[in-house]
Design a protein around this nucleic acid. Structure first.
Length: 704
RNA sequence: GCCGAUGUGGCGAAAUGGCAGACGCAACGGACUUAAAAUCCGUUGGGCUUAAACGGCCCGUGCCGGUUCGAGUCCGGCCAUCGGCACCA
């Protein structure tokens, strides 16, 4: 039984043209200085979010965005652009390492095999990538430069005067280690016992690890941090000129979470403490709070510290010490997840201490409660139950004084309780009668004058926790000597990880690299840093490497960078970047941060990497559920191409509906597209008696 | 709770403010075939008019209102679904 004849002979067409593309290297984009480079052509940089080459191979979601960029690339080439359309591999990562733990096979081998599979699948679909520019983040020739960029970050500080990163040599203070953009800190981190590593805030979803969904706990550990908070304002402001979906810009703005407000110092009332001594008076003079509503200070009738606040022990009275300790233990035993889950109901305990409201001079009680988070602001708040929902709920539960100090339009003072928007200040002495914005300005001025406070901007964004206790990642180009860290010289790069027999996490938080004693030993006195960088490191700059992937002298050549990333008069940077929304606050924020540091240091032409961003939607299974082995609804692109060919596959990917939308796969839809293509084919071709395709007699040359 | 997106046939969907439903799926009818599959051709939003066909008419883009000669499209207010954030002071 011979194979059924294909209505459209894609089995002949696909390989024929793919071989021709390959032979003639038709999709290679020449760099300035290369032969065939035409300076008259404008450039166009079309980028896909490069994949992690997993063992499972491509799924139909990958080629959706890739098809869209490929169409754009081909269109732009035909319109006379020099088009940079590259592909590569974000290949450091957990699955290869976990496979290594199970089988002992080195992750580099697994990675090489997976890349080969991905690459052959992409070629079969017929994408017009410039394969001469392929990059792989796990290649020492690539991560040498990832480490080099880390050195640049380490050897820089953020100058608040210029609002720019500068070489650390320009820093005039006494201890440069305090201001480096890469620094070591003992901080409460997200420790994931199942993964045996710490994770960044951005990698935690609902109190669980984004990868694997394992529980995450807080514990203090010594870790490498990157000072991304220094760039908070620029990361918000410079979103402005970008052609990105509004929703993604918003996600980033919210994640950075800028709030304009004031820090106000509340003195602890001296006679409030039964065991008050001179010592306490000296060591515990005031508690700082952050508020966005300094104008409501006359309504601050109590104060709350986070249970973990360092001053809790000092202010708590002997009588209340037992209750306070119990509450703190109770809170600390809850995971972050439980803490937010059970948070509907307010809880807290009185410390027995009182603070002085600087505006009213009234004594107000100091409580601790877990609705105040140590990680935000100063870890302490002034409670204004009249004009904050949470404070009102707390005050009602514990019977604290509620006072209206902002009058809502058209309401009486009493009716204005619970009003949280801008209104008119009442019962507020010096700011009485002022609308909220003026009241804020005036009270901040007054607080500043009296030395009680100052205006302040606060961010939700935390510094980026940059070290991982893993094997399969970039080693840090850092050594430790006498308890101090020291960066290696550029000439010592790349730092290549040691061969290991056993890749297992130690479980203690000590990285697996620590097991390689010989490797760790750098000199008689110095030992290597054994943490590795997170997977995001490689993807933070891969688009730059695509501009000049084989350069051994520099992370990217100056001329190549200017040409592909500069792009005057166009806005510059990557002209079109397509990928999923899942990277909205991860890759897309981190990459912007690195880009800005390199820009400040003079290595790049433009402050932003990705000018235009489009998010593709998720492709669901035929049953309208997310594709997953569990549901058995996963579509393998190879199967589709076997049956219908690359053209039908690609056409269907684009035919399904708007790129940005979430939508279900349909095999019948693929079939329909295939029939459509066959009709187009037969407009020109017909099958002869012997079964050969020949030009239809209906098609004739016409004399011009 | 806050923010964002979406809402059009039986289904996936299309439509610079200008003939709503292109294209595809499914369904139905037909051609080819001994027959079926495959393939090809045709019909297909709802209703009325007509013996039937042709033709003609009315109603239709979640709901209510507005702007406009004209609204799926623009504006205001609801409702529903999906997604993100969520004690952020």
């Amino acid at each position: 039984m011979s194979e059924r004849r294909k209505a459209y002979p894609f089995d002949q067409i696909d390989p024929k043209w793919q071989a021709i593309w390959e032979d003639r290297q038709l999709f290679h984009a020449p760099n300035p200085g290369e032969k065939n480079f035409d300076p008259a052509k404008p450039k166009f940089f079309v980028l896909d979010m490069f994949p992690y080459p997993s063992g499972a191979g491509l799924h139909v979601g990958h080629p959706e965005g890739y098809t869209a960029t490929d169409i754009t690339a081909r269109y732009k080439r035909l319109h006379g652009f020099n088009v940079l359309h590259p592909m590569g591999w974000d290949a450091f990562g957990l699955p290869a390492e976990q496979y290594a733990i199970r089988t002992g096979q080195h992750p580099a081998i697994t990675t090489r095999e997976n890349i080969a599979k991905f690459k052959s699948q992409l070629k079969r679909i017929g994408f017009s990538y410039d394969w001469q520019r392929e990059v792989n983040t796990t290649d020492p020739r690539y991560y040498k430069w990832t480490q080099w960029i880390f050195l640049k970050i380490y050897n820089s500080w953020f100058n608040p005067e210029t609002q720019k990163a500068e070489p650390i040599s320009t820093y005039r203070g006494d201890d440069p280690d305090k201001v480096r953009l890469a620094y070591v800190a003992e901080v409460p981190v997200n420790w994931c016992p199942d993964l045996g590593t710490v994770l960044a805030n951005e990698e935690i979803v609902d109190g669980k690890s984004e990868v694997g969904g394992f529980p995450v706990e807080r514990r203090p550990m010594r870790q490498w941090m990157l000072r991304i908070t220094a760039y908070a304002d620029r990361l918000i402001n410079e979103l402005e000129g970008l052609d990105w979906p509004e929703s993604i810009k918003l996600l980033q703005r919210n994640w950075i979470g800028r709030s304009q407000g004031a820090i106000i110092e509340f003195k602890v009332a001296q006679d409030s403490n039964s065991h008050t001594s001179d010592e306490v008076k000296l060591t515990c003079p005031a508690i700082a709070v952050f508020t966005t509503r300094p104008d409501t200070i006359y309504g601050a009738t109590y104060m709350v510290l986070a249970p973990e606040h360092p001053l809790v022990d000092q202010v708590t009275t002997e009588k209340r010490r037992g209750d306070v300790q119990n509450y703190r233990v109770q809170v600390s035993s809850k995971s972050d997840l439980e803490r937010t889950d059970l948070s509907k109901e307010k809880s807290g305990v009185f410390t027995g201490a009182f603070a002085l409201n600087p505006a009213t001079d009234e004594k107000i009680p100091i409580w601790i409660a877990d609705y105040v988070l140590m990680g935000y602001g100063t870890g302490a708040i002034m409670g204004v139950p009249g004009h904050d929902e949470r404070d009102l709920e707390f005050a009602r539960k514990f019977d604290l004084t509620v006072m209206p100090v902002v009058q809502a339009p058209g309401k009486t003072a009493e009716e204005s309780i619970g009003f949280v928007d801008d209104g008119i200040a009442i019962h507020s002495a010096i700011i009485d009668g002022l609308p909220t914005p003026q009241a804020k300005r005036k009270i901040i001025g007054w607080l500043q004058e009296k030395g009680f406070g100052r205006s302040n901007v606060n961010y939700k964004l935390r510094d980026w926790l940059f070290s991982r206790q893993r094997y399969w990642g970039e080693p840090f180009p850092v050594v430790w000597e006498d308890g101090k860290h020291r960066a290696l010289e550029e000439t010592e790069l790349p730092v290549i990880p040691p061969a290991l027999e056993d890749y297992k996490p130690t479980g203690t938080g000590e990285p697996p690299l620590a097991k390689a004693r010989d490797w760790v030993r750098y000199s008689d006195k110095a030992g290597r840093e054994t943490n590795t960088m997170p997977q995001w490191a490689g993807s933070c700059w891969y688009y730059l490497r695509f501009c000049d992937p084989q350069n051994n002298e520099r992370f990217v050549g100056e001329e190549a960078e200017r040409y592909w990333m500069g792009g005057s008069p166009a806005p510059g940077g990557v002209d079109l970047y397509i990928g999923g929304t899942e990277h909205a606050v991860l890759h897309l924020l981190y990459a912007r941060f690195w880009h800005k540091v390199l820009f400040d240091l003079g290595y790049l032409s433009k402050p932003e990497p990705f000018q235009r961003l489009v998010n593709q939607g998720i492709i669901l299974g035929e049953d309208n559920r997310k594709m997953s082995k569990r549901w058995g609804n996963v579509i393998d692109p190879d199967d589709v191409i076997d049956e219908y060919g690359a053209d039908a596959f690609r056409c269907y990917e684009m035919f399904m509906g708007p790129l940005e939308q979430m939508k279900p796969w349909s095999m019948r839809g693929v079939e329909g597209v295939a029939r459509f293509l066959a009709r187009v084919w037969r407009l020109i071709m017909r099958e002869s008696q012997t079964g050969e395709w020949e030009v239809s007699p209906a098609v004739q040359d016409i004399e011009p």
